[in-house]
Design a protein around this nucleic acid. Structure first.
Lengths: 193, 193
DNA sequence: AAAGTTATTGAATGAACACTCAATAAAATA
DNA sequence: TATTTTATTGAGTGTTCATTCAATAACTTT
């Protein structure tokens, strides 16, 4: 009954994610997005409302990807502690990759500190989704007997996120892989006390 | 022989620091700076060259303050481990302060990721100054016998910065003070192995 | 093929921005 | 007091930006 959409929404979000991740939100102009997505401003605004709306779609997609990765580890039936080792290992690898762009959520959180309150709230929401996922994992570890009953899942989830975000910032500093790995090992070695 | 300067450079830098810290670099306009410093654009540009130059002066001043704080702890003749406990405690307090602005260096590092290469380099330089200071402290701890001879000062300095930056990001998430403190305690409890 | 509906286009808009510079003011020196 | 030197002023410049919208295109249904 009408003219059909020519673009695929997921591809547009993917292209925008690459740009926001590489350059940051403020430094990415609509013209940049227009080139990367092959959509004229009018179509972009029809699809996402405005630049903020596009970022929100990107942030949601980014978090989904992270959670899906964690789900894929859970499906391999490893212990929670092993899962954390694997997850940290990946963060270390990423942090030491010469072309790393860090974590999009952490980058965004700090870019919007103070200003852009609406976007800051959105980023926090996505970060909480990840933190909650870890909290659930630790709870399951306690229930299964892998961890002591005294282990506070909320506390541990906060600690895990602090480590991950520390790695996320460190990724911008050309760190030595062995140093970061040693740090993660040290932290995990005293995890369940 | 000429008209004297009316403003004090340090006060201008201090006012600019407050703004950059609260709003970030890109979201702070010259007009904002004009209001905060009571200097017209012409004077600002004569004094600092451009907006970048002003930020560099601010970053340098900020790092100086941090290093002076560490020096003040050193002068109290405490052990290196106690010094780290005190330093981490302050970071935790700051991270949980409702009005926290995080760490200006971390905020800036992530704001300039990818873009603004010249400024990113400048921020890294300042962060390295802090990291080097911790490396020296750990070296002294090894030499004085406080830590094992096998302790790698560079590795430990990287780890310390990762913790501090993790706290810096966490500060934007309204974290529970007890959780962050527990995290620091856990990390420090296994510091010298 | 005509009518109806929605998608795409891209030039235009107005606001905000970093930065400049000619004019002016305030001091020191002679 | 006249001259010299440097600081301050703030309107002006050219650019870039997010966003809009009237015109047009593409498809379905009748």
């Amino acid at each position: 009954m009408a003219r059909p959409q020519k673009y695929e929404r997921d591809k547009v979000i993917g292209a925008a994610q690459t740009l926001f991740w590489e350059k940051g939100y403020q430094a990415t102009s609509i013209i940049d997005l227009q080139s990367a997505t092959a959509l004229k401003p009018g179509s972009l605004y029809k699809a996402f409302g405005n630049k903020d709306g596009l970022l929100k779609a990107v942030l949601n997609n980014y978090t989904d990807t992270t959670l899906l990765y964690i789900d894929s580890l859970v499906e391999e039936q490893m212990s929670v502690k092993t899962l954390l080792e694997v997850f940290f290992k990946r963060q270390v690898d990423r942090a030491c990759d010469k072309n790393t762009k860090g974590c999009l959520l952490v980058n965004s959180l700090l870019e919007f500190h103070g200003q852009h309150l609406h976007l800051e709230t959105e980023v926090k929401k996505q970060l909480q989704r990840v933190q909650k996922r870890f909290e659930t994992l630790v709870e399951q570890g306690v229930m299964s007997g892998e961890f002591d009953k005294e282990v506070d899942a909320s506390e541990k989830a906060t600690a895990i996120m602090t480590v991950v975000w520390g790695l996320g910032v460190m990724s911008r500093m050309n760190p030595e892989e062995a140093h970061l790995q040693a740090f993660c090992d040290t932290y995990l070695s005293s995890f369940s006390q």
